[in-house]
C-alpha cells in the first residue's frame, strides 16, 4: 500500500518552471532527482518543510540552468536575441504604417464612422502585443533547446527600454494608464511566445520514443 508521504507530490508550478529550463539531456534527471529528494524529505521532515526546500531548489536551479543555457552557446543565443531585437523593432512600425495608409486612403469612410476609427486606434495595443508574441515564438524557435533562455533574455532587454520610454514620455507629456499597461505587457508577450514554443517542443519530445542513453560510459 502506498504511504501518505509517498503519495505527496511536489508543487506543480515549481516542477513546470524547472521543465521550462532543462535541456534535453537533463529533462529526466533533474525533475527525477528533485522528486526523489522531495519524497525522502517529506517522509523525514514533513510535507511543509519539503515544499519549502523544493521551492528553494527550484529558484536556484532555474538560475543555474538559465546561466548554463547561455554560457553553453553564448554566441548563438546572443545572435538569436539580437536578431529578435531588430525583428521586433522592424515589425513594431507595421501596425502604425498600415493604420496610417488605411486612414489616408479611406478618409471619407473613417470620417463617417469615427467610432470605428477609435476602436481601430485602440486595437494598436493588441497589434503590438501580437507582434511581441510572434517575435517571442520566432526567437524561441531559432534557439533550439534554449527557448526560454533566449525569450527571457530578449524580454529582459526590453524591460529597461520600456521603463526608460515611460520615464521619457512622463517627463515630456501626459502618460495614459492604458498605454503604460500595453507597454509593460510587451516583454511579457515575448516570454509567453517562448513558453508556447517550449511547451509544444516538450510535448513533442515526451511523445517521441525514449532515449536509451546520453553518452556511453
Amino acid at each position: 500500500m502506498m504511504s501518505q508521504e509517498s503519495s505527496v507530490q511536489p508543487p506543480r508550478v515549481a516542477t513546470w518552471l524547472i521543465g521550462l529550463f532543462t535541456s534535453d539531456s537533463e529533462a529526466e534527471a533533474v525533475p527525477g532527482d528533485l522528486l526523489e529528494e522531495f519524497s525522502h524529505l517529506a517522509s523525514k521532515s514533513g510535507v511543509a518543510f519539503a515544499r519549502r526546500w523544493y521551492w528553494r531548489q527550484t529558484g536556484k536551479t532555474i538560475a543555474h540552468l538559465f546561466a548554463a543555457g547561455f554560457l553553453t552557446a553564448p554566441w548563438s543565443v546572443a545572435a538569436t536575441v539580437v536578431a529578435g531585437f531588430f525583428l521586433r523593432r522592424l515589425l513594431q512600425r507595421l501596425p502604425g504604417a498600415v493604420l496610417s495608409k488605411a486612414t489616408n486612403r479611406y478618409l471619407m469612410f473613417w470620417s463617417a464612422h469615427f467610432q470605428a476609427y477609435l476602436w481601430l486606434l485602440n486595437g494598436m495595443g493588441i497589434a503590438h502585443l501580437l507582434i511581441s508574441l510572434l517575435v517571442g515564438c520566432t526567437v524561441a524557435l531559432a534557439a533550439k533547446g534554449r527557448e526560454m533562455v533566449a525569450a527571457v533574455t530578449l524580454a529582459l532587454i526590453f524591460c529597461p527600454l520600456t521603463g526608460a520610454a515611460l520615464v521619457w514620455v512622463a517627463m515630456h507629456g501626459h502618460v495614459e494608464g492604458e498605454w503604460v499597461i500595453w507597454s509593460c505587457a510587451d516583454p511579457l508577450a515575448i516570454v509567453v511566445g517562448g513558453l508556447i514554443v517550449r511547451t509544444r517542443r516538450s510535448q513533442h519530445r515526451d511523445s517521441s520514443p525514449k532515449r536509451l542513453g546520453v553518452t556511453g560510459v
Partner: peptide
C-alpha cells in the same frame, strides 16, 4: 541540483566525465 548539473554538463563537454541513463 541545478548547480550540480550545470557543472557536470560543463565537465562532460570538456571530456572529464561521461554519463549514462
Amino acid at each position: 541540483i541545478g548547480a550540480v548539473y550545470a557543472t557536470l554538463d560543463r565537465l562532460e563537454a570538456k571530456g572529464y566525465v561521461k554519463s549514462r541513463l
